[in-house]
Simulated scan of single mutants.
Amino acid sequence: MKKLFILFSLIGVLFAAEIKDIKSIKDLSSTKDIILMFSIDSCPWCIRQEKVLKDIQEQKDIQIVKVKNGSDIYKELVEKYPFPIAYYPTSFIVTKEDGKLNISYEFRGYQKKSNIIEVLENKDEFLMD
């Protein structure tokens, strides 16, 4: 019985920290900060960044979204907002207000967990102009 409880607990943790692939800007949360991670499937640094973001999501109340190059959401985001994607992964901290996204910060390339946490905890110091 104890083994079964441990198994279900582990499964719960695995599904709690889930990076979502979404279809539209409409699917983004308006109640919490969002990290959009622009990536490509063949990028080993994107895979590493995804693991870091999952770890952060377990500690912070934040929505993390993987935006694959060429997907519908990718096209919608780069068409409507100034997301300069020169490197993979590139991640942005954004908020959604009144259906519109506000970009707070941009991370170019792979980032350590400590770098991302520092920006999340001190967003006012790191706001983009």
Rank of each mutant, 00 (worst) to 15 (best):
M1L: 13
M1S: 14
F5A: 14
I6E: 06
L7V: 14
S9M: 15
L10Y: 07
I11A: 08
I11T: 06
I11L: 06
G12F: 13
F15T: 11
F15H: 10
A16C: 13
A16L: 15
E18L: 11
I19E: 07
I19W: 09
I19P: 08
K20I: 10
I22C: 02
K23E: 15
K23T: 14
K23Y: 13
S24Y: 07
I25N: 09
K26G: 10
K26Y: 12
D27Q: 11
L28M: 09
L28F: 02
S29W: 06
S29Q: 09
S30Y: 12
S30V: 06
K32Y: 10
K32N: 14
D33S: 14
D33F: 14
I34S: 05
I35Q: 01
F38W: 05
I40N: 11
S42K: 10
S42I: 06
W45S: 13
W45G: 00
W45T: 12
C46D: 01
I47Y: 06
R48D: 11
Q49W: 01
K51E: 13
K51Q: 09
D55S: 06
I56C: 01
I56Q: 02
Q57D: 01
E58A: 15
Q59K: 15
D61Q: 07
I64S: 01
K66Y: 08
V67N: 04
N69Y: 15
N69D: 13
N69S: 12
N69I: 12
G70E: 04
S71G: 07
D72N: 15
Y74G: 01
Y74D: 02
Y74W: 05
L77R: 05
K80S: 00
P82I: 07
P82T: 03
F83Q: 01
P89E: 06
I93F: 08
V94D: 08
T95Y: 10
E97I: 14
G99V: 05
I103W: 06
Y105D: 05
F107Q: 04
G109W: 03
Q111P: 08
K112Y: 14
K113L: 10
S114R: 12
S114Q: 13
S114F: 09
I116A: 03
I117D: 06
L120H: 03
E121N: 03
E121D: 09
F126K: 04
F126Q: 02
D129C: 11
D129N: 15
